[in-house]
Design a protein around this nucleic acid. Structure first.
Lengths: 349, 349
DNA sequence: TTGTAGGCGTTATCAC
DNA sequence: GTGATAACGCCTACAA
């Protein structure tokens, strides 16, 4: 008789049901299902056939409770509706699928509080490991240190913390930003604005370093007025745009830290009727295939999002499955590539 | 003593631990934690303080096992790296968060087998309800009928099946396609190609109907050579493009069923040096803000992705929480909006 | 007001 | 080769 309040699933069958139906004990059934050597082949057949017929499926919740594990890894990203992360998730799922794990996806929505909450929930759900990319509002990472201290395998990717020793997978942000900036310099730009993400993030810092290193090669001083940290909101992007173009010496080039920021700038420039081809050149960190369709086309640094997810998940699963702890923390750095897209616009100077 | 093989979580504390520490029974502790009226206020304080101090967190797995529910809803989308679905997921998460539910996200990767697998896994995981958008290779929906028969609350959104009675949330695909096509007709186009998704999908059929209805207003016959069903791969897009432009009477307009398809076509046309402004006009179903940045800008039908997710999740949660079953199946149809973006290109005829 | 016992589904240990 | 029992963490009917 089903409990009164609980949902009833009419044909959910358990080991106990099988045992009853075949006049066996639950332990025998359990062993038969797990193909134990100590079970009579006939009994085994009987059980397997019946289980098949009744669509028996082991209850993963009961297993998790017993085993303290779940055959699942948890992923926390700042935002799923960010092409970079959704592509990374694809890489993660591919790696997990190959090795028989499920993937539980959460987003922190760029909020520290949400991130803490999700971390706790994943731990409570007994995921076997966690893949993490930090929210832009996360400065204190005690929640992650605690997680690690409690023995949870943990791998950071893309947006990594500096103040914790762990396994990390990152892109070569420095190199990408360096080459992108150099490209603008080589095409004659000298007032290159850098529009980038929140200052606390690792990716922000690395890209800024690359930008500055390139400027240095041309003996150009760091002009802080040309560096803008911001979120993805169009209002903020436009405020920065106004600030930049009201400078005594406005920028003649843009090195943006993401495709979304770049699109925001294109939109903002267009709205202000600032003709992009004649005034400014763009480079962005792009994962979209729109870069070359824009007017003018945008050169871009492409980061291997899928590969990053795949690598990070592979590393995490190694961690989970190796009995012995890895002797030291590994850091994988994936290379980035600069695609130069020339404007075919005739009025280019 | 911890089990030898299971992962140890050093400070994971249970009700039993609290009971032992305070010399109480587990039931007393349990009741105190749930703020039961029958517990001595002092005992309650004692328990709550200790639980707080030790960072006690109830084990959701044990709860799920007991209650056959999980305070979580499951979502299956064809692909997360699709702006439309990732925005819908945001809407879903917002609605779920408001009502204290977690969201478990899976992708079917446009594969029927994967979809079946994910559905089973969600059911096994005892999610309290399922939100579903069909894969493009799903024609047989027995797995979903079964799920529903077993009592699982189920709401479809965006890509819905026709052969099952359920709650559904969809966009006004017919109206959007109708208005988009009409827009092209009004601007003088007469050979309008329709590039769309897989023929089995509800969205595909509805949009095709809208397209045909608009043509009919202008007494234009349905030319099947102008309608192309395809996936998102660039190869397929380009093959269609070649077929279309090798027609005796090539298209002079495009009505595409998604932003991604539209971008594929822009890319393909560009590669072939087909000058878009003079030859063809585009309309696409867009959720990106790039439409107006393209060259030429693309008019687009915008669908409310976030709102769709939010609505669908709200409906599902109502279903879950109402004791009485809803008397009849509800279908929500969300309106779409056509944004016309004129080319500012001087060589427009 | 508090304690005891049983059960959710499964597996491991120990008997027989 | 098979069965009984306990345990994972929690809740609740029943007993005291």
């Amino acid at each position: 008789m089903p409990k009164e309040d609980a949902p009833e699933f009419v044909d959910t069958i358990t080991i106990k049901d099988i045992a009853k139906a075949l006049n066996l004990s639950t332990s025998t059934v359990s062993r038969a299902l797990r193909d134990s050597y100590e079970i009579n082949p006939e009994t085994k057949r009987l059980v397997l056939d019946y289980a098949e017929k009744m669509h028996y499926r082991p209850n993963p919740i009961a297993l998790s409770l017993k085993e303290n594990r779940s055959q699942a890894i948890g992923v926390i990203v700042p935002e799923i509706a960010n092409t970079y992360f959704s592509q990374a998730i694809n890489g993660i799922e591919a790696a997990a699928y190959e090795r028989g794990y499920h993937v539980v996806i959460f987003q922190s929505q760029e909020s520290y509080e949400r991130e803490v909450e999700k971390v706790e929930h994943l731990a409570a759900r007994r995921v076997d490991g966690v893949l993490m990319s930090l929210s832009s509002h996360t400065f204190d990472i005690d929640h992650l240190k605690t997680l690690q201290d409690r023995g949870m395998p943990l791998v950071f990717f893309d947006r990594i913390p500096t103040s914790i020793e762990t396994h990390k997978v990152v892109a070569d942000n420095f190199g990408g930003a360096y080459r992108a900036t150099l490209h603008l310099l080589e095409s004659g730009r000298r007032r290159i604005a850098h529009i980038t993400s929140q200052p606390g993030l690792s990716i922000t810092k690395e890209r800024l370093s690359g930008y500055l290193a390139a400027l240095k090669e041309y003996n150009i001083d760091h002009d802080e007025q040309l560096v803008k940290f911001c979120t993805y909101t169009q209002e903020e992007v436009e405020a920065n745009l106004d600030a930049l173009f009201s400078l005594a010496a406005p920028p003649d080039g843009f090195m943006t830290a993401s495709d979304r920021l770049a699109l925001g700038y294109y939109g903002g420039l267009k709205k202000r009727h600032i003709r992009i081809p004649e005034d400014v050149a763009f480079v962005g960190f792009s994962n979209l295939n729109v870069a070359e369709l824009l007017n003018p086309p945008m050169s871009s640094v492409v980061q291997p999002a899928f590969q990053m997810g795949h690598t990070a998940a592979g590393l995490l699963l190694d961690l989970i499955e190796k009995k012995e702890k890895f002797p030291e923390y590994r850091i994988e750095r994936l290379s980035t590539e600069l695609f130069i897209r020339e404007s075919s616009c005739p009025n280019k100077h």
